[in-house]
Structures are given as structure tokens and as C-alpha cells.
């Protein structure tokens, strides 16, 4: 086993060169280069963290703006609806008024017409009555030879008309 057989001859050289090269490794690579590598990693981690934070705050701001927009949009929609319903109400009121006026005119016309019809009918009835009275007088005079006064005839005719 050379590790033991050569121990006496080589241990000092082994230890010396190991200390030299491991020392170089430690001081140049371990102490100088590795911290820089790790610093880069830390920098990158910091960058990523800050980028993430920036993205998050940007998203929050966007959410906020969207919310504000939504509120405004809702307000606008409500205002528009109010205007529409007001216009509708106004139009309805106007048309109702117009309708009422028209109805009134029509009613008046109807009433006039009815009145005229009523008058015409009364006139006609009176005429019929007088004709009937005269006819009754004539009929009675001719048939019975009795002269009936006008008021009696009128009364009888009226009675008959009321019954008939």
C-alpha cells in the first residue's frame, strides 16, 4: 500500500502541496470568486422580487381603475335610464292629456248630437200628438157626431200614447 509504504518519504510534500493548492482554491476561488457568483444570484433574486412587486402593484392599479370605471359606468347607465324613463313619462303624460282633450271634444259633440236628437224627437212627438188629437177630433165628429173639445182629446190621446 503506497500510502503507508511511501509515507515517510512523501508526507511532507503531500501536505505542502495540498496546503498550497487548497489554499489557492480557498483564497482565490472560495474567498474571491464565489461571493461574486452569489452576489449575482442575490442581485437577480432582488431584481425578480422587485419586478414581481412592480407587476403586482401595476395589476392592483389596473384593478382599481377598472373598479372606478365600473362605478362610473354604472352611474352613467343609471343616469341614462333616468333620462329615458323621464322622457317616457313626459311623453306618456302629454299623450294622455291630448287623449283627454280629444275625449272631451268627442264627448261634447256626442252630447250636442244627443241633445239635438232629443229635441228633434220631442218636436216630432208633439207634432204626432197634435196630429193625433186633430185626427181623434175628426174621427169622433165624423163617427159619433159628438164634438170633443181639444183639451179632452189631448188628454185621451196622451193616455193612449202613454199606454201604447
Amino acid at each position: 500500500m503506497p500510502q503507508i509504504a511511501q509515507l515517510a518519504d512523501t508526507w511532507s510534500s503531500q501536505v505542502f502541496w495540498l496546503l498550497v493548492f487548497f489554499g489557492l482554491t480557498f483564497f482565490i476561488i472560495g474567498k474571491f470568486m464565489v461571493p461574486k457568483v452569489m452576489d449575482t444570484v442575490a442581485q437577480r433574486d432582488g431584481q425578480i422580487a422587485s419586478d414581481l412587486a412592480a407587476a403586482k402593484s401595476a395589476r392592483d392599479a389596473a384593478d382599481e381603475q377598472e373598479e372606478a370605471w365600473r362605478v362610473k359606468e354604472n352611474e352613467n347607465r343609471a343616469a341614462a335610464q333616468a333620462i329615458v324613463s323621464k322622457a317616457k313619462d313626459e311623453a306618456a303624460a302629454k299623450s294622455e292629456k291630448k287623449l283627454a282633450a280629444a275625449q272631451k271634444r268627442i264627448d261634447k259633440k256626442l252630447a250636442d248630437a244627443e241633445l239635438r236628437i232629443g229635441e228633434a224627437r220631442t218636436a216630432a212627438l208633439t207634432e204626432v200628438e197634435s196630429v193625433a188629437v186633430e185626427a181623434a177630433q175628426d174621427i169622433v165628429k165624423t163617427l159619433a157626431g159628438v164634438k170633443v173639445t181639444k183639451p179632452t182629446a189631448t188628454k185621451a190621446v196622451k193616455e193612449q200614447l202613454a199606454h201604447g
Binding site: 518519504d9 512523501t10 510534500s13 503531500q14 502541496w17 493548492f21 487548497f22 482554491t25
Partner: peptide, 17 residues
């Protein structure tokens, strides 16, 4: 008084470094 000959062992330490 201690020998510090550059050996094949030291050579591979150098290569490793």
C-alpha cells in the same frame, strides 16, 4: 529539512485547482 518534491500527486492537485 522537509522534502517538498513536486510529485504526480501535486500535479493533479494543480490540475484540480
Amino acid at each position: 529539512g522537509f522534502n517538498i518534491a513536486f510529485t504526480n500527486s501535486a500535479m493533479w492537485m494543480l490540475i484540480t485547482t
